[in-house]
């Protein structure tokens, strides 16, 4: 099972994601430069966080036009698991693979702190091992994470902020999935919440089950 972790100019979460996949959960992950990415040979893709192209135009807008997204679009339509974290979520939204938009935070500042999210949908390859309604801790670190969609009822919300809504997202939505569930994006960083050493007091490693879910889903032939 091979997972591609895509790197754009300005991506900074790539090595953390690859570390967790390779060393913590035991999947094989390669960090791939976006211009070199070919979907063939990969069973899943993670678009990590960062500031691709310096957030120019809008966060994720320029990376979403990369040829890599054509490959990812094909993989998505084949049903393969695709995950976007933070800037990766912004890229998936900008590319149209996920619905809605991510706007500057309300209140208008960069937020970097641990939050709790509730898992609403466990029928995705990234949430299969969570319990319905489970609350998981993960950190957020973003300036443009206010999820917006005209019709929030229509969206397949996977994660909502539990307790405080840190960025003004509509219906407290922190992460969404495509209709089929194989494409998932979220603003919090599960890769920074998968090892005890990184977790502050009062929180748990709420991101670990996301990666274990991917491993389990791939081994079952998702």
């Amino acid at each position: 099972m091979r997972v591609a972790v895509i790197r754009f100019p300005g991506t900074n979460g790539d090595l953390d994601v690859a570390h967790v996949l390779n060393r913590v959960v035991g999947l094989r992950a390669d960090v791939v430069w976006h211009e070199k990415f070919e979907g063939e040979g990969y069973d899943a893709v993670v678009i990590p966080g960062g500031f691709s192209y310096g957030d120019w135009l809008r966060a994720g807008a320029i990376a979403s036009r990369s040829p890599a997204l054509k490959e990812i679009r094909e993989m998505a339509s084949d049903g393969k698991p695709i995950l976007g974290i933070c800037n990766g979520f912004q890229i998936l939204v900008e590319s149209g693979l996920l619905p809605g938009a991510l706007l500057p935070n309300d209140p208008p500042r960069f937020m970097a702190r641990w939050v709790r999210v509730k898992v609403l949908n466990t029928k995705t390859p990234f949430t299969a091992m969570y319990n319905d309604g489970e609350v998981a801790s993960m950190p957020i670190a973003h300036g443009e994470g206010r999820y917006y969609i005209d019709d929030p009822i229509s969206v397949n919300a996977v994660f909502t902020y539990h307790g405080e809504n840190p960025n003004g997202s509509i219906n407290s939505i922190a992460g969404v999935a495509s209709g089929d569930g194989n494409v998932v994006g979220l603003m919090p960083h599960p890769e920074r919440a998968s090892e005890d050493a990184l977790v502050p007091r009062g929180h748990g490693k709420g991101g670990l089950k996301l990666w274990l879910s991917l491993k389990e889903s791939l081994s079952r032939g998702w």
Partner: peptide, 12 residues
């Protein structure tokens, strides 16, 4: 410019 939704930068 933003339409409809909140504009926190403008409000600030």
């Amino acid at each position: 410019t933003l339409k409809g939704s909140r504009d926190p930068e403008g409000e600030t």
